[in-house]
């Protein structure tokens, strides 16, 4: 017991300062893409099919838009651009409440969406119980969601908690493109949750199928069967992106 107390003392207080201070990010962290309209010559190099592995770059007249709901943040489009018109910022606040807001368009200033769902705020504004279902997720989204429960992030501070049964859940957080083999289990989990119930799609796979869109063994993301209330881009989303998104959905920041 004394050893445990000594260990506790030596480890110190380790919960990060987020959200009061911005999260510590590597200078190589690829956040929300930035399109510089002035530099783009419309050559269309970034939109060639062999560039983006998940088909996130598309647009008209050779001028791209980037769908962060598909993007895996590999940076291939930025590397191919001869004019350096595509970049990845340090902006980690990428979660959105509408699918449309995930698309980055040239020249549009970015302001994270504010919550509009009154019913959600009334039920879950101060307490959000989440049941997580991995439906073909590769493990990374799951691991970085789990991380929010550790003392480094301690999402329990905000009333966000992972629950072990859909019966206790306000919200289903889905990761993965929804593999066909998980379709029944996902539907059953959703049906087992008391109403009202909300849905979070976390990661490119869950939002759009990501890399796996088009595989005959998968659906193209959770949207094919359930309507998400929060979309969290990334492959996998950084814990700060996910936590910030949930807090914003709860109107806690």
């Amino acid at each position: 017991m004394l050893k445990a107390l000594k260990g506790r003392f030596e480890q110190g207080f380790r919960t990060g300062k987020f959200p009061d201070a911005p999260p510590m990010l590597s200078d190589r962290f690829p956040g929300r893409p930035v399109l510089e309209a002035a530099r783009c010559t419309g050559c269309g190099a970034c939109m060639r099919t062999e560039v983006c592995p998940s088909g996130a770059v598309a647009g008209k007249d050779g001028r791209p838009e980037i769908d962060t709901g598909k993007c895996i943040f590999c940076g291939a489009c930025a590397e191919i651009c001869p004019e350096k018109a595509i970049g990845f910022s340090q902006e980690y606040r990428m979660a959105a409440m509408t699918r449309r807001a995930l698309v980055v368009r040239p020249g549009e200033p970015y302001i994270p969406e504010r919550p509009t769902n009154r019913e959600f705020l009334r039920f879950c504004g101060r307490s959000l119980k989440i049941r997580q279902v991995s439906a073909g997720g590769c493990g990374a989204c799951e691991l970085d969601f789990n991380v929010l429960g550790t003392l480094a992030w301690d999402m329990g501070r905000f009333g966000i908690q992972i629950v072990a049964s859909p019966r206790h859940a306000d919200c289903i957080l889905v990761t993965g493109p929804v593999s066909r083999n998980m379709l029944v289990a996902l539907k059953k989990t959703y049906d087992a949750a008391p109403r009202p119930v909300w849905v979070i799609a976390s990661g490119a796979c869950a939002i759009s199928g990501g890399l796996y869109a088009g595989s005959p063994e998968c659906l193209g993301g959770v949207e094919e069967i359930l309507k998400p209330d929060l979309y969290v881009p990334g492959c996998p989303p950084h814990p700060a992106t996910l936590l910030e998104g949930m807090l914003r959905l709860m109107n806690r920041r």
Partner: peptide
Amino acid sequence: YQHRGIEAMLAGGPDEKTLH
């Protein structure tokens, strides 16, 4: 349950998706 058909998707590669 996690089957996504990766090996089938790899056939005909390598392409822009393979590494990912």
